[in-house]
């Protein structure tokens, strides 16, 4: 009998509700996986509140602003062949980041099969995509700063726009950097066969979880800051 099956069921009566409670309060481990995955989920929940706080603050600052909010289509546009294409760069960035979510998911699937080379290749691809995203974001920042956008003021309207933009995308970018470091470490360990030695590949999944989270948050940032 495994640990998870030893759910302590209160009393003789069984109802769905009771079973859920019993399931949740089984001894030894509440969730049927290692602690690091549980910890990552909890961290994500907490970090979600950080991003939620930033986005709520964004909404508050935007409502309170006395100057008009800048036209994002214009601010975030690329001029290609003389024509202004709104939101082009950011659309590409978003596409890249979402694709990287896909590659990391495939990598996790490969890790379940304990397929070292496939896992590593897909992780490597994810790393490349993430780095591309960062590079494009760096380009966007320099471009905007060049045009006079600063946290304290900007030529397009309310100063809170620049302030929230740099703060929130910067905070997200930091998450991407940390994610890259995390993925790189996992990649190295996959290559060295470390997970085979310790007998669990769960770290790949944990890194994947984090990466999905970073991507998911980006979708919200994209929607709030660039679109709405």
């Amino acid at each position: 009998m495994t640990e998870h099956q030893q759910a302590a069921v209160a009393g003789g009566r069984r109802s769905a509700w009771r079973e859920i409670v019993a399931d949740f309060s089984r001894d030894v481990r509440t969730y049927p996986f290692g602690w690091s995955k549980a910890m990552m989920w909890i961290f994500i929940l907490s970090d979600l509140f950080v991003f939620g706080g930033f986005l709520a603050a964004y909404a508050g600052a935007r409502m309170a602003a006395t100057q008009p909010w800048p036209d994002r289509g214009h601010v975030f546009s690329l001029t290609i062949g003389g024509a202004e294409v709104p939101l082009l760069l950011i659309a590409i960035m978003t596409f890249i980041l979402i694709s990287s979510s896909g590659t990391v998911a495939l990598s996790v699937a490969a890790s379940h099969e304990r397929n070292r080379s496939k896992t590593a290749a897909l992780l490597g691809l994810t790393l490349v995509l993430g780095a591309c995203f960062l590079g494009m974001q760096a380009y966007e920042w320099t471009h905007l700063i060049h045009e006079g956008f600063l946290p304290s003021s900007n030529p397009a309207g309310a100063s809170q726009f620049g302030a929230t933009f740099f703060m929130i995308t910067g905070f997200h970018g930091t998450h991407v950097v940390i994610g890259l470091i995390f993925l790189a470490r996992v990649l190295l360990r996959v290559l060295r066969g470390y997970y085979d030695r310790i007998g669990t590949w769960e770290q790949v999944e944990v890194a994947g979880l984090y990466w999905h989270f970073v991507d998911l948050v980006w979708v919200f940032i994209f929607a709030f800051i660039y679109l709405i």
Binding site: E3, A8, F24, R29, Y31, A38, M39, I42, S46
Partner: peptide, 23 residues
Amino acid sequence: TMGGLNYITTVLQMRTRGMTLMR
């Protein structure tokens, strides 16, 4: 945050045999 992650995870995942949440 670092501390809290540990406390929560430890309580959820590291209890000894027989130590259900309701004990």
